[in-house]
Amino acid sequence: MRELLMLYVCGVILLLAISTTIGSEEDVGLDHIVIAAFGWPIFTSILAVKALKSR
């Protein structure tokens, strides 16, 4: 469980660090960046379950 939490925190930090390279002309708001940073584990697990069920 500790490794999973560490992976989640590293992913959030990585996404937030990458988001600082997005220019202001891209029309990507902070709310989109925060949703992407904190929501990726949920969405990837949903996609993984769907992929396993489709087999």
Rank of each mutant, 00 (worst) to 15 (best):
C10W: 09
G29K: 04
V9G: 02
I18A: 12
R55I: 10
L15A: 00
L47S: 05
L52S: 07
T20Q: 12
L5D: 03
R55M: 03
M1W: 06
V49P: 00
G29N: 11
V34F: 13
V34S: 06
S45F: 06
K53H: 02
T21M: 14
H32A: 13
A51E: 10
T21I: 13
T44E: 11
S24K: 12
V9K: 14
L4S: 06
I46N: 01
R55E: 07
L16P: 11
E25P: 02
G39T: 13
A17D: 00
I35H: 08
L16W: 06
G29S: 10
V28Y: 01
K53C: 03
Y8K: 10
L7R: 14
A37R: 14
L4T: 13
M6R: 15
W40S: 01
L5Y: 10
R2E: 09
I13A: 12
A48E: 11
A17L: 09
V9Q: 11
G11S: 09
K53F: 02
I46P: 00
T20H: 05
R55G: 15
V12H: 00
S19T: 05
I22C: 04
L30E: 07
G39Q: 06
C10H: 09
A51I: 08
T20R: 11
H32Q: 14
I13K: 07
A48V: 07
E26S: 14
T21L: 15
F43T: 15
L4D: 03
G29D: 08
G11M: 00
E3W: 03
V12G: 00
G11Y: 00
G11Q: 01
I22Q: 06
A51F: 11
S54W: 10
G11N: 00
E3M: 01
G39P: 01
F38H: 02
A48F: 05
T20L: 10
G39N: 02
I42W: 14
S54R: 15
